[in-house]
Write a protein that binds this DNA or RNA. Structure first.
Length: 821
RNA sequence: GGGCGGUUAGCUCAGCUGGUUAGAGCACCUGCCUUACAAGCAGGGGGUCACAGGUUCGAGUCCUGUACCGCCCACCA
């Protein structure tokens, strides 16, 4: 700071008192102190009074609030924070919320385990219910049967568990120094989010984008719920082809190949390729199944591959997606044998739709598999197929031809599930997306993807979408459908004409709220009403993150001020879910893109280049590394990886980050402890240094503008370390203390301070604590910006008053000279 | 089977629109406690830029093909 030395007219740059500062910088002490100050000063607050064009809006990912955060989260959330801190210094009014995605299966699973309970949507709420936590030391097999409780009681427990997780998550984010506006915190299960999700449903319903249908859908038998295409993944599994002989009416036989003999009872047709010479004569005839002696039509289809198996196959209700297609196209009967719990349901041959040429045998065989799960049923059916008594026609041999042939094949799983998906007919709600594909792609192209090639992933997924979005889940902890059904004289729901909730009554639970126009006593009664027991797919709610923070349709609706948003940071594995659904919602509700930029972080891989995961036991805990290296060092590590790039976890980089922090501390102490006359920058070397600094500012700014923060960091770091401290600082040390060159000394001190001031600001988004610490020693007072994070981002205009050096090469020449010595 | 990334020093990675002897950090070797910093400084060794062709005066950079690694999607009888 400049003061006037007593007895002179010369103003004097006063040094800081180095002896008052600790010898070493301690992140563990400084970081909490600075966090408290930022909080106190409110520098992360959004200012609703400022106009949209001065505002930078972030659609932050709400992490799943169950279990724990891992290094990958720290990595990608830091990336968003780097961009935000840059924009804040550019003078932007930052809208930076944080949400917790707490509804959904992960939470349910945790609550089931923590309390040993199960939920039943139809049980009445018990206000006095007390549930003890399971002692974590209890072995699973020693647990009593789970207590079945009402959905509302279950949800209360979910709230308890997620509230604990959210506190832990928030602490971690604060420790990491995320500059989130904690006034804008939300959860996806809170009332506002529920109201907005239900409002979304009503709006889509009104616009004709939502329908309800009883149809085959992908079904997870463990969770007993429908799932959507986006939640499905393939897993390689062992299987076996079983060659099974069917009879043909009028004589002869054919041999099909199947991996799912247990579905033989669900067989409703036989298919082969129309050009397949082996089967051409059979189309239009009927085949007869072994074991059950059920006649089924033989038809031709281009989808049948003559090369696969025996070239002829059985169509079941339902073995896979193609079965569903054939069932529709050929108008085949429905013979579903698998129940929602994954067990074989009871059927009687001889009943309508279950005709058999030998009902007695069919029933005897079928009775053996009733109530069994798929694998067990398969073993039993295979044994039955080995008996010639079960041949498809009189006098036939054992239907199973040879031994099953083992194969490896991809099987569809629910991404959170443990059993293969089944296709079951059930009543589900859908959002129509198949008719929106072109428009979804067009919207995707209006968004800038960083890195650009990630946009292609979105486009491929959208173009290849095969199904509308199944949004209903037969689960518990989620947002309810704001829907009731009228009951007919037999108390059966009339699904065609649902009763919708009035917008002003949201949020509500139709299982406890009374349908409009009815009395609660009419619930479940003939002529009365019933609530829709299903809940939304969690993505139905989390895809509304822009609307939730924008309070769409609520008091204080800010959509006009925030929407479309500036950036959506997220990981690339959820392009097909979170990004896709958010774009879809935004299109259907507002005919707009939800944001202008998508910013995609890569994954953290372990040194074997595998994705880090809990199951691999190679997870490093984020808190541990923050405690050991400090937030600045951890942020340095995240900041050194560019967007989209998967990065191997390398603890060395934390050390490098920590070293940079130390260097900044020491360089700051040195520069600000220099004293001398105040004056202009006039010396040729100093001017040359400033010219170098100026180009650095331009490069770092350009990089940040393209979301390439890692390049900005690298440029700044190499300038700071090499140009500034190793070269310039060494070159002017003497002159900065000179007694006989007051002008040169003034010039050196002014340049040193400018160099420090500017590089600190360039580093501020990456290492917020150390930069604010050094900033506070002198520059905070000089500029009136008490925190560096609200100081102006450096611009080349700052240097306009400083003349260019006489020779552009002065600086490198001086460096060469010192190197030679 | 289709698509998208990647392959550069022992390790982790830069290298933007093709242009002088290919870079950084870590690790390694040598020398220095030079009053900001030994968590530092000065210097050094180490790379046929996966491979094969091609375009060009000139290719790590552009084109074609191959191999390997990873991801996404499809296949599921």
């Amino acid at each position: 700071m400049a003061t006037t030395e007593p007895g002179t007219q010369q103003s004097w740059v006063k040094p800081i008192d180095v002896s008052a500062l600790p010898k070493r910088f301690e992140p563990g002490e400084a970081e909490p102190r600075w966090r408290a100050l930022w909080e106190q000063w409110g520098i992360h607050r959004y200012d609703p009074a400022r106009p949209r064009q001065e505002t930078f809006v972030v659609d932050t990912p709400p992490p799943t609030a169950s279990g724990s955060l891992h290094v990958g989260h720290v990595f990608s959330y830091t990336h968003a924070d780097l961009i935000v801190r840059y924009q804040r210094m550019r003078g932007k009014n930052i809208f930076y919320p944080m949400g917790w995605d707490d509804n959904g299966l992960p939470t349910e699973r945790r609550v089931q385990n923590v309390f040993n309970v199960r939920s039943d949507a139809f049980l009445p709420f018990d206000a006095d219910l007390e549930i003890e936590r399971v002692d974590p030391k209890t072995k699973p097999r020693d647990l009593p049967r789970p207590t079945v409780i009402s959905r509302r009681n279950f949800i209360d427990l979910c709230h308890i568990v997620t509230a604990e997780d959210e506190v832990a998550f928030k602490d971690l984010w604060k420790m990491l120094g995320l500059s989130v506006d904690w006034n804008e915190e939300y959860t996806t299960i809170e009332d506002r989010s529920r109201a907005i999700a239900q409002r979304s449903f009503l709006d889509l319903y009104e616009k004709g984008h939502i329908y309800q249908v009883e149809a085959p859908t992908m079904w997870d038998v463990d969770f007993s719920t429908a799932v959507a295409q986006a939640e499905v993944e393939d897993r390689e599994r062992d299987g076996a082809f079983h060659d099974i002989e069917f009879g043909v009416e009028g004589g002869g036989s054919l041999v099909i190949s199947t991996t799912r003999p247990e579905l033989l009872a669900a067989c409703v047709g036989i298919a082969a390729n129309p050009d397949d010479e082996r089967y051409k004569g059979l189309f239009g005839k009927r085949a007869v199944s072994p074991v059950y002696r059920v006649p089924v039509p033989i038809f031709a289809t281009e989808l049948a591959d003559p090369e696969k198996g025996t070239g002829v196959l059985m169509v079941c209700t339902f073995g896979d997606q193609t079965d569903v297609q054939w069932w529709r196209e050929q108008e085949l009967p429905l013979r579903q044998v698998l129940g929602r719990d994954g067990r074989i349901v009871d059927r009687k041959y001889g009943d309508p739709g279950w005709e058999s040429d030998d009902p007695e045998r069919a029933n005897a065989n079928y009775a053996e598999i009733v109530g069994k799960r798929v694998n067990q049923a398969r073993r039993i059916v295979v044994e039955q197929l080995r008996e010639s008594a079960n041949a498809a026609y009189e006098g036939g041999g054992a239907p199973l031809q040879g031994e099953p042939r083992p194969i490896k094949h991809a099987v569809r799983f629910f991404e959170k599930g443990d059993s293969p998906l089944e296709y079951l007919t059930s009543r589900q709600w859908f959002v129509r997306l198949m008719d929106q594909k072109d428009e979804l792609i067009r919207k995707g192209r209006q968004i800038k993807w960083h890195p650009e090639y990630m946009g292609k992933r979105y486009e491929d997924w959208t173009a290849n979408l095969g199904l509308d979005w199944a949004i209903s889940r037969q689960r518990h902890f989620g947002v309810q459908f704001p829907v009731w059904y009228r009951l007919d004289d037999q108390a059966n729901p009339v699904y065609d004409d649902p009763i919708l909730a009035a917008p002003e009554t949201l949020p509500l639970d139709p299982m406890s709220a009374t349908a409009p126009g009815y009395e609660e006593s009419q619930r479940g009664q003939p002529g009365g009403f019933a609530g829709e027991p299903d809940v939304f797919d969690t993505w139905f709610t989390s895809s509304l993150s822009p609307q939730i923070v924008g309070r769409w349709g609520e008091d204080g609706d800010k959509m006009a001020d925030l929407f479309p948003m500036d950036i959506r940071p997220q990981a690339h594995d959820i392009i097909r879910t979170w990004a896709f659904y958010t774009i879809a919602k935004s299109l259907l509700h507002h005919d707009e893109v939800p944001w202008h930029n998508v910013v995609l972080s890569g994954w953290i891989l372990d040194p074997d280049r595998k994705k880090m995961s809990k199951s691999r036991g190679n997870v490093v805990t984020p808190t541990g590394m923050l405690e050991e290296y400090g937030a600045d060092a951890v942020r340095y590590w995240a900041g050194s990886a560019r967007l989209g790039a998967d990065t191997a976890f390398d603890e060395q980089v934390f050390r490098v980050g920590k070293r940079l922090v130390t260097k900044l501390y020491n360089a700051g102490k040195y520069v600000l402890s220099q004293e001398g006359p105040e004056g202009e920058i006039t010396n040729e070397l100093d001017l040359a240094f400033i010219a170098e600094l100026r180009t650095l500012v331009d490069r770092a700014t350009a990089a940040f503008d393209e979301y390439e923060y890692s390049r900005a960091l690298e440029e700044t770091e190499s300038f700071f370390w090499s140009t500034f401290t190793d070269n310039y600082l060494e070159l002017v040390k003497k002159r900065a203390r000179s007694e006989d060159d007051p002008q040169g000394r003034a010039s050196a001190i002014a340049t040193l301070r400018t160099g420090l001031n500017v590089t600190l600001r360039l580093f501020a988004p990456f290492v917020p604590t150390i930069t604010d610490e050094v900033w506070s020693w002198a520059f905070a007072g000089e500029t009136g910006k008490k925190s560096i994070h609200v100081a102006d981002w450096p611009s080349s205009a700052e240097f306009d008053a400083i003349p260019a050096p006489a020779n552009k090469r002065s600086f490198s020449a001086a460096c060469d000279a010192i190197a030679a010595v």
